[in-house]
Design a binder for these strands. Sequence first.
DNA 1: TCAAAAATAGAATTTATAGTCCATTTCTGA
DNA 2: TCAGAAATGGACTATAAATTCTATTTTTGA
Lengths: 270, 270
Amino acid sequence: MEDKAPASIKQFEERLIDVSESLPKRLRQCADYVAANKDRIAVSTVAEMAEGAGVQPSAFMRFCRILGFSGFSEMQRLFRESYAGGWPDYSTRLKHLREKDEGSASALLGEFVDAGRASLENLLKTIDPRTLDDAVEALAKAQMIHIIGLRRSFPVASYISYAFEKMNVPAMLHSGVGGLDNHNAIRTGDVLLAVTFSPYSAETVDMVEAVSARGIPVVALTDTIVSPLRKFEAITLSVSEVDFGAFRSLSAPLCLAIVLSVAVGTKRSD
Amino acid sequence: MEDKAPASIKQFEERLIDVSESLPKRLRQCADYVAANKDRIAVSTVAEMAEGAGVQPSAFMRFCRILGFSGFSEMQRLFRESYAGGWPDYSTRLKHLREKDEGSASALLGEFVDAGRASLENLLKTIDPRTLDDAVEALAKAQMIHIIGLRRSFPVASYISYAFEKMNVPAMLHSGVGGLDNHNAIRTGDVLLAVTFSPYSAETVDMVEAVSARGIPVVALTDTIVSPLRKFEAITLSVSEVDFGAFRSLSAPLCLAIVLSVAVGTKRSD
DNA sequence: TCAAAAATAGAATTTATAGTCCATTTCTGA
DNA sequence: TCAGAAATGGACTATAAATTCTATTTTTGA
């Protein structure tokens, strides 16, 4: 009843405060319980919420209506969506895009910008500061930093290499030019910084394996936890970038890469 | 199948890593999607998860079983229970990071993420759709696309090169390996795609000049309007990236680069 | 104190979602 | 190349959850 449903958590909270003054007993219990347990809404059933509030499910339903929702489900949707951070569903959006705008370049731009922003936001949420610190620490102590990252990961690797050079950090980019490998350049006291994303290039995985076996520390920049680099003892920073079609904009990995570089550069200059 | 269900997120992750090596295609997709979107499990239905992973719901069910659960619900319960509801939203989280020890790696991360987001937003506002279309048009008509971008711009250039190759667009990256230039590879009918940001590398500017004089079309990806490339007749896409300290995260240029690549690739395949 | 209105509890119904089954396709190894 | 095994897609069923309905209780105000 009343007007329309809150469209954001903020609006929801305002509405809750508004309304809670003038509520009868049971509905008041609902309001109090919800206020204290907002985070449960996304993952509970009405029955559970009702029990928590000490009321009947039907009472809880009435409460949802008073807040302006059509029912519990609608209210729950608000919380579920805002939780997952609005990770957009790209495969379907891409389909739409194809049909609608015939993939006009500016429409594409909008999608990629969106994907990039979501990825960056997610990066902030998922990176563990401790692991990041460990990675910086390890790299800062290295005599020399070896960087590998091929194919899709090559832009990231090359940017790290550029940044290190600018900051006078001794680093070597293993780009495999001319098929010349330089595995033997990696010596005790050095650290390997490996960048790889699905599909993981065999060369990178091999190098990590070989180097790791020799007891040389490895810092890995990869996607998700199922990356093959997990097998080895490496300090692993995982970043997930939203796919859009077959491509990713690399925003998040690059952002992390530059942070890593600057942090290492700063630490070393102390 | 297998033994018993994981009893914690940690066990869940271990299990996921364990099995993910040896999974067939569809189940592998499930594993990858789940690894990258763990937070979604608590608030999604099987149908949604399956769609996200690009598989049938029944395949996703099989996947849950392989992980040791009796079905999706049991797996979901694990995540719902351990769901602490931790959403400090993006802006408050960012504030925290900033306030926390200045110069720590995570604080830096906050700054770069923010800079990246701002740059992307700005990109959307400043790109002229007409110019973008012109650029796509020109590149799509090219017999061969030559790409140049050195130093700071090299990651962008190399990513474009990667994307073109994936989409079967004939392209050549002029990376200057070994100081071997291949200026003569650029022939009538080709187009040059030049990427350069301040400080503009002389090699790139020279190449644009030479090529432009021969009447070969040039598409330039550069920053601001004072770029030296302005002198030549080029289709110029300008992107400004927010600086943070001496470095930029390249989010915006890369985003534009990938859009350009995908648009060109799509157009050519018609 | 009593009648009317509002609120509530619990059962009944509807809907959404998980979970199952089997025909078809795709791999694998001789 | 082919037979057997594994994997897959999609329709089907069972189940759990949301929602509605109504009889009963509680509150309100004259």
